[in-house]
Structures are given as structure tokens and as C-alpha cells.
Design a protein around this nucleic acid. Structure first.
Lengths: 220, 220
DNA sequence: AATAAATCAGTAAAATTATACCGATAATGT
DNA sequence: ACATTATCGGTATAATTTTACTGATTTATT
């Protein structure tokens, strides 16, 4: 099995495929087949792009037939790491932090948040739906024991970088950052920023151009 | 002033610049200058990339000096459309919908959610922090009156596509979708999916590769 | 058995995005 | 005043990503 390189953009399309396939599995029987063409129509993506993406993680596609929906789902799950659970810890048990901590939906994507940390003694120790919130001082000790490699940051802007540093010191390799700053990491460490402002930028930029065009070219 | 084309990736970096500049303005006086180089260091981005991005929206950069932090912020705000408010409506006043509706932070980014819609009569009519939730049937009528062009979707998966269609029929041009499906739009209509699964895909993919590498090459 | 239709998968080309390079310019120090 | 330094901004190059094309493969049809 040769290791193909998969672009980041392609990685981001994979969960869309998986979601779609899962929806098919719910609707109909498990022995269905589907073609890249059909998927591309359903998801409004380029036919070639879908075929390329799928080819990069699977080789079960049969001409004239397509892919077994079930098998392809399995392969996507494997690729995305949903089959072997991703364990994570979370720092910052405020509003957002607690919401994520208690969010059941992550299970579907193979994510399990094992523990949370906070520096506020008031929230520490309390469990919400079985999860424990530790004082931040215990971070190194507990991370070492758990061997977790993914960290979620839900602290206010000011402390985000120091939490990030703390995580990296303790061998966290992938960081999901919900604080509204772009954090400084290190080579090999992935920092993924979940920034609503970024989304808004895309949206409002589109809107501005859209409205301009319609004004200029006399759009109705 | 010639219209330069700005890549989508570049657009997504703009709010990062703006956030950083704003943080500088808070910390120090308003007559500061900053260079693209300094920004690139702070945000851990390529120097050339930052300079290019800034050049595409501003021409106030002075050699040896850099940009006026305040002026550049203004230009970024203009570009991002934060200066002239973006108005939006939201469909789906469930948990997430209400959270967004009441989230104060959007103001900072020039977003104002004017009204919400839901098909459940129980939530309709009630106001939470001054916002009104209308029955979905009134959508066409009210959108027409408000002239809003941005729509936010926070309904369950099953109804997301029909809400999307409804929005497009009523001349919404940019859709921010929080439902966990990829929606089908139409040319000219932007659909931006806020999908946590996508983020998770990026993270867990990185992690898998990271762990593999460290295993193979004997990373301690 | 032969033909047609649908689809995969590999290679090539095009488009997009990021990076490198270099001359011009403004401030600073000599 | 002149050299030096930091920085901008444009052009050129490289890398990445998407799209197009083509041949091979499998099923259905005549």
C-alpha cells in the first residue's frame, strides 16, 4: 500500500463524504453501491475531484459500479481516525468549554474528551455529566498518565498562548483552539483555529462583491 | 484604485491581522507603526505572505516604517465589511440558534442578527434579549421588508436543505450553515459550512501522521 | 459473443496560491 | 550630505491544487 499525499483541502472534504454516505446507510440497505459521480452531484462538487479524493484513500472502486457505500464509509472512518478513538483534553471550563465537554455529538466522530482543566477553583472538581475538571496545576501529571495527544483550548484570549505553550511542553501534538487569537506553535505541532471571525470574513467578503456586481451590472 | 483579486485563503487571514492589530491598539498608543515582518512573526506566518496580503488591501505601507496600526485596522475593517454592518437573519431557534442570537461578540465583527425564525410555535414570538422569533411562514414577507442578504442556518440536518432553498428563493446571497450537511446552492450564492467535523478531520489526520512518524523514526 | 454504457484510475494540463528575489524608498546614523 | 538599514511592492518562480483527458475495466444489452 503506497502512501499517497493528500492535500489539506481534500482532508477537509472527507468528512463530507462520510456524512453523506452515513445518511445513505440510514435511508437504505447496506449493500448499496454509489459512484463518485453520484456523490459529486449530491454534494455539489466536481466529479473529478470526488473521484480523486476517493481514489486517494480507497481502491475498492469498481468501474460501472462505483463504491460499496458501507466499505467506503469504513475506509473514510479509518482515514479520519474515527474508528480508533481520538482522546483529547480541554483547558478552560467556561461556558464554551463546558458546552463542548458535554456535547454528545463528538462520539460520532470518534472524539472523546477525557478531562478538563481550569485555573478557577470554583469550577474545579465539579463534574458535569461524569467528566472531571482538574486544577490547571495538575495538567502535566495527568497528561502524562493519560498519554493524550490532542488539546482543546477554550480559555479567554489573554491566557490562550500560555495554555498553548503548556500543552506543547507536555507533548500535545494537535491543538484545537477556540480562543480568538492565532497561536504560535512549533514545527510538527498542528494548531487549528476555530475562528468565527474567519467565517464571517469569507461571508461578508462574498456579500460585498455580490452586491457590487449586482449594482454595476444592473442586477434586477 | 484598481481591483485586485484576493484569494479566499488570503481573505481568511485578514481577520487574523485585524485581531492582532486591535490587540496592539489596546496595549499601546494609537500612533504605532508595524511592519509586515513583525506581524508575520507574531502570527507565525510567512513574511512575504503577510506583505502580499496587506499590499492587496492597502497602499499605506511606508518603507522602513511599515503601516500605521490604526490606519491599517481601518482598512481591514473596511475590507472585511465590519465598518458597515452586515445584517443577517437566523433560522432555527434551538439551543445553538439562541446562543448565536444572543452572542454579543458578533458586534465586534459588524454582524447584527436582526431576527430569527422557527417552525415550532413554542419558541415563536418569545424574545430573548430583545430579538424576535417569528414563525417560519413569515420568512418571505419579513425578509423582503428587511432586505437582508445573509442567512444563518441552525436547524437540524433534515430540514437544512429546505431552509437553504427558502433562503435562496428569497434572495439571500450568503448562507452560514451550522447544520451538519453540505448544502446545495446555486451559482453566485455562497454557502459557508461551519462544520466541526471538518476541523476534527484536519486534527485527527495530523495526529495520525504525527504518531506514525514518531513510531517509525523512533521519535522518543 | 459482441457491443454499448458507466465508471474508475492514471497522466497531463491549467489554475490557483505561496514563495523568492530585487529595485525603490524612507528613516537613521556617521 | 552620504552610506546604511529596514521595509515596501512589483515581477518572476515554484509549489500546490484542481480540472481535463484518455485508456482500462466491469456490467448490461442485443
Amino acid at each position: 500500500m503506497k502512501e499517497k499525499k493528500i492535500s489539506k483541502s481534500a482532508v477537509q472534504r472527507m468528512p463530507l463524504y462520510l456524512d453523506y454516505l452515513r445518511s445513505l446507510l440510514i435511508k437504505a440497505d447496506v449493500s448499496q453501491y454509489i459512484s463518485a459521480t453520484a456523490i459529486s452531484n449530491a454534494l455539489n462538487l466536481g466529479e473529478v475531484q470526488v473521484r480523486k479524493d476517493l481514489a486517494s484513500i480507497s481502491s475498492l472502486g469498481k468501474p460501472k459500479i462505483g463504491y460499496s457505500v458501507l466499505d467506503l464509509s469504513r475506509e473514510l472512518e479509518d482515514f479520519l481516525g474515527y474508528s480508533n478513538v481520538n482522546e483529547a483534553v480541554l483547558v478552560g471550563a467556561g461556558k464554551l468549554g463546558k458546552a463542548l465537554l458535554n456535547y454528545q455529538g463528538f462520539g460520532q466522530y470518534g472524539l472523546r474528551i477525557l478531562a478538563a482543566f481550569d485555573r478557577d477553583a470554583k469550577v474545579v472538581g465539579k463534574t458535569s455529566e461524569g467528566k472531571i475538571i482538574y486544577p490547571i496545576e495538575k495538567f502535566p501529571q495527568i497528561i502524562k498518565k493519560l498519554g493524550v495527544k490532542m488539546g482543546i483550548i477554550t480559555v479567554p484570549v489573554q491566557s490562550a498562548q500560555s495554555v498553548c505553550d503548556l500543552m506543547i511542553e507536555n507533548k500535545i501534538a494537535a491543538i484545537w483552539n477556540f480562543a480568538n487569537v492565532s497561536l504560535k506553535g512549533r514545527k510538527g505541532i498542528l494548531i487549528h483555529n476555530e475562528n468565527m471571525a474567519v467565517s464571517l470574513a469569507v461571508l461578508s467578503n462574498h456579500l460585498r462583491r455580490y452586491l457590487d456586481t449586482n449594482k454595476k451590472h444592473g442586477g434586477k
